[in-house]
Design a protein around this nucleic acid. Structure first.
Lengths: 140, 140
DNA sequence: TGTATTATTGAGAATAATTCTCAATAACTA
DNA sequence: TAGTTATTGAGAATTATTCTCAATAATACA
């Protein structure tokens, strides 16, 4: 954060903490509620701004499950323990975090990122991998 | 479409055609404008409904680039010629379609889908792969 | 350590994408 | 061909997200 010429503020701390402790798949509203405990005066707009910033920096990742709210979670780079991808039910919106195959995926992703960076001149900060389908319950 | 117990209507045809000919990354609004030519009475709500349906069926895929409109394109399953993934600039929102690495990615994705389907009991219909970062212009 | 600079904030208004409602219509089935 | 019922169009309604702006406070620097 500081490294990017940004200031570290209580609001940003609160958002970061909220993401860290409340776990995955949080909507902005949920982050707001959590963060409010630590930082009672925080405003919803600030939460949105902070989440967007963090997403840009690759600290958080934003994704959506088909209902209309975006969801956020800590990105914890590919090497982190908690790193996972999502399997989303298109009917009930249930989200399964999976870590299986992550190792192979990660390796391929790394290579792909490297190749893309070189070929297209991008500086790649994050990726989004998601599978969609019907969960066992909704298949019936 | 018919296979899923759905009816084939002029509106759905028009949406499908719009996606087919106008290419990638269309917003609902853009699909609406295109589809209107073929089906002058089509309503925006129908376009949204149809796009959602198609996304569910795995015929279309929905993704977002960070601005607030969702974007859609034909899914053309992993085997199709046009199949590609996205590289999105988090600053200017530019989208690069890339096909490089697709072959390896596809192979891994296939295996992953198979494994996930077995382990979690999902019927997997589609996937979303996206890289985010800064494009050459925005790096400056 | 105090001060200036300027990024950041909170509140609420404003925007705009998307969904909802409902009566009318038209695909499909038998 | 008629009946059933999914689908539609229009516009209203919702609601997630962004914007505005003056006030505040984090950092840099004297």
């Amino acid at each position: 954060m500081r490294g990017h010429g940004r200031r570290m503020t209580p609001a940003r701390h609160a958002v970061l903490d909220a993401l860290g402790e409340r776990g995955e798949h949080l909507t902005a509203e949920e982050v707001f509620r959590s963060a409010s405990r630590r930082c009672p005066d925080i405003g919803l707009a600030t939460v949105y701004r902070t989440l967007e910033l963090m997403t840009r920096l690759g600290v958080a990742s934003k994704f959506d499950t088909g209902d209309e709210k975006a969801r956020y979670e800590l990105a914890e780079g590919p090497k982190a323990k908690g790193h996972h991808h999502h399997l989303v039910c298109t009917s009930c919106r249930r989200i399964v975090d999976y870590k299986d195959f992550i190792k192979e995926e990660t390796e391929l992703l790394r290579k792909t990122e490297e190749g893309l960076a070189k070929k297209y001149g991008f500086r790649i900060d994050s990726h989004l991998i998601q599978f969609h389908g019907l969960c066992p319950d909704c298949r019936k």
